[in-house]
Write a protein that binds this DNA or RNA. Sequence first.
DNA 1: AATATATAATTTATCAGACATCATACAAAT
DNA 2: ATTTGTATGATGTCTGATAAATTATATATT
Lengths: 240, 240
Amino acid sequence: MFSKLGQRKSLTEQVEEELTAAIRAGKYLPGQKIPTESELCQIFNVSRTAVREAVKKMSARGIIKVRKGSGAYVSEVSVQNASEILNMFFELSSNEDLVLHTIDARQIIEPMLAARAAKSRTEHHIDLLRKNMKNMRSCALDDKKREAELDNDFHNTLLSITGNEVLELLLGPIFSLMPKFKTSVFAKPTSGNLLEAKNSMLEHHQNILEAIERKDAVTASEAMKNHLLETRANYVRSIN
Amino acid sequence: MFSKLGQRKSLTEQVEEELTAAIRAGKYLPGQKIPTESELCQIFNVSRTAVREAVKKMSARGIIKVRKGSGAYVSEVSVQNASEILNMFFELSSNEDLVLHTIDARQIIEPMLAARAAKSRTEHHIDLLRKNMKNMRSCALDDKKREAELDNDFHNTLLSITGNEVLELLLGPIFSLMPKFKTSVFAKPTSGNLLEAKNSMLEHHQNILEAIERKDAVTASEAMKNHLLETRANYVRSIN
DNA sequence: AATATATAATTTATCAGACATCATACAAAT
DNA sequence: ATTTGTATGATGTCTGATAAATTATATATT
């Protein structure tokens, strides 16, 4: 049979690929300015339209950053940048399956994270976690949005203790996905006793914090595991 | 004092935000066609330039897919798409720190992954892993590229056993990062005995496989932990 | 009537040129 | 020395035109 004829790519795509390749090859380093639009027009012998659309795509991918009146600069490939894009993905595709898989993923990862945190935490971290719990206790019972943010904050603090930027990149967006569905979960009247749910959550956080405080990795891991088991149960109950 | 004037965003960005919001709100469902460029011009009362650049950005983000002569369609937000973007990030920023953090992240995640796999594996999975090891054994000693791919394949198979698409999204790009640095590591003459290194790796994989085969979660987890400890040690040695 | 085939209409891709807006550097004025 | 004005170059936006791909419609053929 005939192999599909390589449908020639659009000019925009070609420009995008070449430019991206040049950046990957190190021709333009992070922070450096890439050629101006008119220069790129001459280099690739295409119109400004093609160049600009390629540039727009690359900026959407986080490869470059365009500053009006100044030029386009190669982005410092920061974790933050990739994280934003991941965030967008989770925002756009928050179906029930995804949320469930997200919680499952957390069940696999976070217990070990808590264990690690127990080993390498400093007094500063303990302070942060204590303050978080204090805020959580004083948070109004019906302010589910703030409660979710504080919960998010608690887990993010644990995450930051590891100082692992890859984990932060991967888990950050996952954590920030939770508040969105959590508010919708607890918005339902079927969610049972709000006070009970909050107290249970506080208790779990307290257990985790105490274990981390006394550098007890095993208990910290177990406490986190229990915490997420309940989180999962709450979610499953809410969608049934 | 005057409050800082909210720097008005560019038309392109405004169009992009509004359109994305509309899609998120479900006004245009996956697979459906969004209005044509000229219609969008009328809707937002801007030029085609602004509309097209917004559309290009959204297509770069994987939100829509444009078909020439036909129109732009909301894409099924697939994990694959987000994975591509993550991949690009790792490709663009593969410094030593990142690789180290990547291995650390794997040390945190993969032992539990192996434990889960031990619980839910089927005969089919065992077959796949056995075939992988067979291929690995018959792989030429100096073909480090293929060896890295096979190693990648082994871990990806374990990953697929969980059937968790979130984990696959997050870990897939991490796994595919390894072959790139691995080849460079073993390309160095300082890497010691190649045969010894390969046999050690094979042994670790064998231990993991056997534990999974007899559904022994604890041992599988331990074996994976040991495997990654050595991987890390190899890498650290190679960069010193 | 059913099926190709050709034609027209629609839609995106690309080009060219113009003006607006912002950033920056430098000269001029205070 | 600081501020102000001005010139230059960069990106942002608009308009209008042509090319290329797709889709719909009409026509012709069997």
